[in-house]
């Protein structure tokens, strides 16, 4: 048995990769899938904080790769969903601690353990860690902000996904690419201060799989260590729910793309 491998990547840092990895993994588990989410950012562990399991990390990804711990020992079971597990990045080793063979072995073993999905949270950049996170992927979620440097970097990443992955090298068919637009602010788009969904789709030549509106709830969720997809009341959480459903093949219309209409009093008196 092999697991479907999904890399969450972006090139640029700070666009929402870890937030997305946490919500995607949680959403897949909510859909009844057995999921492992792996932090590839060796030396800068953060996924554990966003998932809220930072105090339960004993062994990490590098320990498993080096045979210092078994996969079972290192996988941290989520408190909320029985079928969701976190594999933390090492805080002490440098990024050379991961090897291609080691990563391959871990991913294979996860398949043998009956995992349906493995979500790989890529570090920023295009160095070794990012390369290893994407190399074995079947799907890629490219996280992009409606901002010039992020859009340019994601085009670079889309190029790398098409050429520097195992699927590409073996000619096994293209990796499935999903573009996820995050930190979207419909009010600023409406007044021409921010690139629109359509703009980003046109520039990159690929349709979005989801649009996550900029939301205060994302920070609140990370403060609490609860993936934002679990916050039903937030638009960002609902948008992540839609995105996961689409990745699983469901058709769902995009939501939250329009600026909220101003009420009568706001129009008359401003504000």
């Amino acid at each position: 048995m092999t697991a479907e491998i999904i890399v969450v990547t972006s090139g640029k840092g700070g666009v929402g990769k870890t937030t997305t990895s946490a919500s995607l993994a949680t959403g897949l588990a909510m859909a009844g899938k057995k999921v492992a989410v792996i932090d590839f950012d060796v030396g800068l562990r953060n996924l554990d904080l966003i998932m809220g399991c930072e105090r339960r990390v004993v062994y990490d990804f590098v320990n498993v790769v080096h045979g210092e711990a078994t996969l079972k020992q290192a996988l941290i079971k989520d408190k909320r969903y029985d079928s969701l597990y976190v594999l933390a990045a090492s805080q002490t080793r440098d990024k050379d601690a991961l090897t291609q063979e080691g990563v391959e072995k871990v991913l294979e073993d996860l398949g043998k353990e009956g995992f349906d999905y493995v979500v790989c949270d890529s570090p920023a950049g295009i160095e070794k860690g990012a390369h290893l996170a994407m190399y074995f992927a079947d799907h890629a979620v490219v996280v992009v902000n409606p901002e010039v440097s992020s859009v340019r970097d994601s085009d670079r990443i889309l190029g790398l996904l098409a050429s520097k992955t195992r699927r590409a090298e073996r000619g096994e068919g293209a990796i499935k690419q999903h573009l996820l637009l995050t930190r979207y602010n419909p009010v600023r788009v409406a007044v021409g201060e921010m690139l629109s969904v359509k703009d980003v789709e046109e520039i990159l030549g690929i349709n979005v799989v989801g649009v996550i509106p900029e939301s205060e709830n994302v920070l609140a969720a990370s403060n609490a260590g609860v993936p934002v997809i679990l916050d039903d009341n937030s638009l960002a959480g609902q948008a992540y729910g839609d995105t996961v459903a689409r990745i699983l093949g469901e058709e769902r219309a995009l939501r939250f793309l329009d600026a909220p209409k101003k009420g009568f009093f706001q129009r008359v008196f401003g504000g």
Binding site: M194, L195, E202
Partner: peptide, 18 residues
């Protein structure tokens, strides 16, 4: 609008880099 400027700049640089 600045978004129009951004789109045009990106269109050119992305095409060149590709």
């Amino acid at each position: 609008p600045t978004a129009v400027v951004a789109k045009e700049r990106l269109r050119i640089i992305v095409a060149q880099e590709r």
